[in-house]
């Protein structure tokens, strides 16, 4: 059916963006009345929502109390991202060397098969590494270092292009994303 201008611009008006969102709202209604269930089945204990504020305030008070208790000050080390990169590289190099040594050692005929290291094949080590059992996630770094340590990390030596290039190359898992402001 064709719409004439007078049909659209008569005395009737619609809320702003009405037609822009209409399709989505109809789809939502159709879906809800269609094949998918309308609820998720999750429930909460009675009074949970009434008590949650009090419990959050208690957590904050407890943390503040703990924070205000004087503790022996430790010297805060200053790490640059490059330091961390060097450390990771060194660890990786060590693993590669160890893997190579084990491999060479295991291949030698004079090797005593009863040694426990015989049971550790290079493939096992590689499997161990490839299956994220020896990872160093960003979250691990944040768990190891406190806020002061993280603030002390200098990123000034890294160019934006380097960071973007690194992320494009390595960021494949959506869960690795950290949302900011």
């Amino acid at each position: 059916m064709k719409y004439h201008k007078k049909d659209r611009e008569g005395d009737f008006r619609v809320p702003e963006d009405y037609f822009d969102t209409l399709e989505d709202r109809i789809m939502q209604t159709v879906l809800r009345e269609g094949k998918l269930p309308q609820k998720d089945g999750f429930e909460i204990p009675p009074d949970y929502m009434d008590q949650v504020e009090g419990r959050i305030m208690t957590v904050l008070e407890t943390q503040d109390k703990h924070k205000n208790t004087p503790a022996p000050r430790k010297k805060t080390p200053v790490y640059t991202l490059r330091d961390i990169a060097y450390a990771i590289s060194a660890a990786a190099a060590a693993v590669v060397i160890l893997t190579t040594v084990f491999h060479a050692d295991l291949s030698s005929p004079e090797r005593n098969n009863t040694n426990t290291m015989v049971n550790l094949a290079p493939e096992d080590i590689e499997f161990y590494m490839e299956n994220d059992m020896l990872p160093l996630y960003g979250q691990d770094i944040t768990e190891m270092l406190d806020t002061t340590d993280l603030n002390a990390i200098s990123f000034s030596t890294l160019e934006d292009e380097e960071v973007i290039s690194y992320l494009e190359e390595h960021l494949t898992d959506y869960s690795d994303l950290n949302f900011d402001n």
Binding site: L36, P37, G41, F42
Partner: peptide
């Protein structure tokens, strides 16, 4: 704290198979 029948359980199974995003 889950008051779901078989369909709701299956819905959760289906959601669990989706990629994170």
């Amino acid at each position: 704290y889950f008051n779901g029948n078989e369909i709701l359980l299956k819905l959760q199974q289906a959601i669990a198979t989706l990629p994170d995003k």
